[in-house]
């Protein structure tokens, strides 16, 4: 059988640096939904808020122009949010995709898109929304891989730890949880959007029924004065 072009970069090879810190630093924004909404709506990125959910330089009020990350907060449930920040120390845009407000979610998937001329993906990792394991009877399996420049296929689904004809798929309720983390370095200046390609957005219940969700985007703005490739 002839096989089409395989993207020959394994997920493991992509993990150029440990991502554990991303979890802890971004965990700070996993506050109540209301707070997230308020902050995101109220704060203009240019004001330099310290709320990293909507983007700001974390290395203080430097005079140097830094890239900014502006996410959108959800106004409906269920939702998929792209949160992130510019980490000046690491010189990277660090992103976590959050999902929330889901009932009986079996799996969720989409093609994540970004401007490959402006951003270069340097790390990616699936996260476990519920920290389940074989001992709780369920586990999440996820995948993330480049399909083309600026297009990443990703998805997670909840599986039973055992395979049996009468052990039916079962979804879970998720108030707010992490799906995916990504790191980009900037390649050029200007604004670009990180989002999900509309026809590929999909969430399903364990019955197979599709779940309509609010899929949000985020904007990365690299100022003209920013020095590309600056050392961390």
């Amino acid at each position: 059988m002839t096989l089409p072009n395989l993207v020959n970069v394994s997920t493991a090879a992509r993990l150029s640096r440990p991502l554990a810190w991303v979890l802890t630093s971004l965990m700070a924004v996993s506050c109540a939904d209301e707070v997230a909404v308020t902050s995101a709506v109220a704060v203009d990125a240019k004001t330099g808020s310290t709320d990293i959910a909507v983007g700001a330089a974390v290395d203080g009020a430097s005079a140097t122009a830094m890239p900014t990350f502006v996410g959108q907060a959800h106004s409906a449930e269920p939702y998929v949010e792209i949160a992130g920040l510019w980490n000046a120390e690491a010189q990277r845009v660090q992103v976590v995709v959050w999902i929330g407000g889901f009932t009986d979610l079996l799996g969720i998937a989409a093609h994540l898109t970004y401007d490959a001329d402006k951003l270069e993906l340097v790390a990616q990792q699936m996260l476990d929304p519920t920290q389940e394991s074989a001992s709780t009877g369920f586990l999440w399996r996820g995948l993330v891989k480049d399909l083309a420049p600026g297009r990443l296929v990703t998805g997670i689904a909840r599986f039973r730890a055992i395979s049996h004809p009468y052990a039916y798929p079962d979804g879970t309720d998720l108030a707010r949880a992490q799906w995916l983390s990504l790191e980009f370095v900037v390649k050029s200046t200007g604004k670009s959007t990180i989002g999900f390609d509309v026809p590929t957005r999909l969430a399903r219940k364990a019955t197979g029924e599709p779940i309509a969700a609010q899929w949000l985007t985020a904007e990365v703005d690299v100022p003209a004065t920013f020095v590309i490739g600056g050392a961390p």
Binding site: A110, V153, G155, A157, R158, F159, H164, R204
Partner: peptide, 29 residues
């Protein structure tokens, strides 16, 4: 599947196929 793993026949093997697989998981032994 003629494109192995492309269960939903989209032309790509992607996350949607993983979700489809979750729906069909088990089912027989």
């Amino acid at each position: 599947t003629g494109t192995p793993g492309d269960f939903n026949l989209s032309g790509f093997v992607d996350g949607a196929d993983l979700v489809e697989m979750a729906l069909r998981y088990g089912r027989a032994m």
